[in-house]
Amino acid sequence: MSTPPFTLAGIDHVVFLVDDMDRALKFYHGVLGCQPGYSYPAMGMEQVWAGNSLIVLWDTSHPGAASAVPPVAGGRNVDHVCIATSPFAPDDLRAHLAAYGVEIEREAQHGGARGMGFSAYIRDPFGNKLEIKGPAEYPDGRAQP
């Protein structure tokens, strides 16, 4: 088998499913002292800084969150965990995952705790969704850890 084309940098963000964004933001801002992060209003998603990492709040009552709504009410409360990595070539990641029979469900350029960068979404053998996220990418092609 192949070795990963990256090294782990830590947890980038965790996505919590909520059903009342105002209440969630009051808690994370007021009680925990989180600072505002990226905002995705079309998806019903707000991100808050928790130190150097992000907590993503995804409002399942918002139409843009249809893909996050659990099939059974109360069935789950975490959408996915994002694992931050060193720079890697997406083709190398694809080949590495294929060598283990791991399917990439989706690829995207997303904002995270380190900025906008390439993400690949996979599932562990138990069905937990993981986002493998490289560092921030800049218009000139540089990747920054």
Results as ranks from 00 to 15, higher is better:
16 F>K: 03
74 G>T: 00
58 W>Y: 11
71 P>D: 10
47 Q>C: 04
130 L>S: 08
77 N>V: 01
104 I>N: 10
70 P>V: 08
137 E>L: 14
126 F>H: 12
51 G>Y: 15
26 K>R: 15
66 A>G: 05
104 I>K: 14
38 Y>S: 06
130 L>W: 08
96 H>V: 07
138 Y>P: 08
40 Y>H: 12
52 N>T: 14
77 N>F: 11
20 D>R: 09
130 L>T: 02
44 G>C: 09
125 P>L: 11
82 C>E: 03
48 V>H: 01
137 E>Y: 15
16 F>R: 02
68 A>N: 11
119 S>A: 12
96 H>G: 08
53 S>V: 13
65 A>Q: 04
95 A>V: 01
114 R>C: 02
57 L>C: 06
77 N>Y: 12
90 P>L: 02
3 T>D: 00
75 G>H: 05
53 S>G: 13
125 P>G: 05
54 L>N: 03
61 S>R: 15
2 S>P: 09
42 A>H: 14
117 G>Y: 13
43 M>A: 02
87 P>Y: 09
86 S>R: 12
132 I>A: 00
137 E>K: 15
51 G>N: 14
73 A>Q: 09
91 D>F: 00
63 P>Q: 03
26 K>H: 15
18 V>C: 05
48 V>R: 00
56 V>C: 05
71 P>F: 14
56 V>D: 05
85 T>K: 03
105 E>I: 09
16 F>D: 02
131 E>L: 07
39 S>T: 14
33 G>A: 06
48 V>D: 04
130 L>N: 08
38 Y>G: 05
70 P>H: 10
2 S>K: 15
130 L>E: 05
8 L>S: 10
88 F>G: 00
21 M>W: 13
33 G>F: 06
76 R>G: 11
97 L>F: 07
65 A>G: 03
93 L>F: 12
8 L>P: 04
80 H>Y: 07
134 G>R: 00
78 V>M: 01
139 P>W: 11
57 L>I: 10
73 A>G: 08
90 P>C: 01
137 E>V: 11
95 A>Y: 08
25 L>Y: 07
26 K>W: 14
46 E>G: 03
48 V>A: 02
38 Y>A: 07
126 F>G: 10
130 L>K: 12
103 E>T: 15
70 P>S: 07
141 G>N: 13
37 G>K: 03
140 D>S: 10
76 R>I: 05
63 P>Y: 06
22 D>K: 14
117 G>C: 10
16 F>A: 09
58 W>N: 01
40 Y>C: 01
37 G>P: 02
94 R>C: 02
141 G>V: 13
55 I>N: 00
32 L>A: 07
98 A>S: 09
119 S>Q: 08
5 P>E: 11
121 Y>L: 10
121 Y>G: 06
43 M>H: 12
32 L>R: 12
136 A>H: 13
75 G>Y: 03
32 L>E: 05
116 M>T: 10
18 V>L: 01
16 F>H: 14
21 M>Y: 09
1 M>S: 14
60 T>N: 00
47 Q>L: 04
91 D>L: 04
136 A>T: 12
79 D>Q: 08
23 R>F: 11
85 T>S: 09
65 A>M: 04
100 Y>K: 15
96 H>D: 03
73 A>M: 09
72 V>C: 00
41 P>H: 12
26 K>E: 14
92 D>H: 02
78 V>E: 01
106 R>G: 00
